[in-house]
């Protein structure tokens, strides 16, 4: 099933890019078109392999599969962290989500002392990087915009 899903995803990607094709120069499309055609062919081959060899291989990679709940938690935390950047900025968003991730990664029920410890570590790490980048390396970072 993994091969069929993988091949189908590749074909969908090809389709999305194919409808976006719009070239203004003679040679502008030569390379991307060649890549798209080759990728489509390989996508079809992967689907065909999934159908023909469904008894021989699953198509899934043999690394440990994560539970949907765990995977969902990780994705929600990361997406929320990144999505909050334009609003909370690097510093406040960083401290908030660093603490949240650290607390949620505890395997036992966290006490208030644990939460305070995680918050303290978050403040130290995030502020240290913030100062190093903005004051020493002069790299600007997203700021709070509430």
């Amino acid at each position: 099933m993994g091969n069929i899903i993988g091949g189908a995803v590749v074909l969908v990607v090809c389709l999305i890019f194919w409808v976006q094709r719009s070239y203004s120069s003679e040679y502008g499309g030569i390379f991307p078109d060649a890549v798209l055609v080759a990728l489509s062919i390989l996508g079809v081959m992967l689907v065909a392999r999934g159908v023909l060899w469904r008894d021989r291989e699953t198509g899934w990679h043999d690394t440990g599969r994560l539970g949907y709940k765990d995977l969902g938690r990780a994705l929600i935390l990361l997406v929320a962290w990144v999505a909050s950047l334009p609003i909370l900025g690097y510093l406040y968003g960083g401290i908030l989500f660093f603490t949240l991730v650290a607390v949620m990664m505890r395997t036992s029920r966290p006490t208030w002392k644990n939460v305070l410890l995680d918050f303290g570590v978050a403040v130290v790490v995030v502020v240290l990087f913030y100062l190093a980048f903005t004051q020493v390396l002069f790299v600007s970072l997203p700021e709070l915009s509430l």
Partner: peptide
């Protein structure tokens, strides 16, 4: 096969933006 698909996906990502020759916006 999967390695080649990965490589071609990378090549496809590399075509995003202004073309290095000709200046097409893609």
């Amino acid at each position: 096969l999967k390695g080649l698909i990965g490589g071609l996906l990378g090549l496809l990502l590399a075509t995003v933006g202004i073309a290095p020759v000709g200046g097409d916006v893609r």
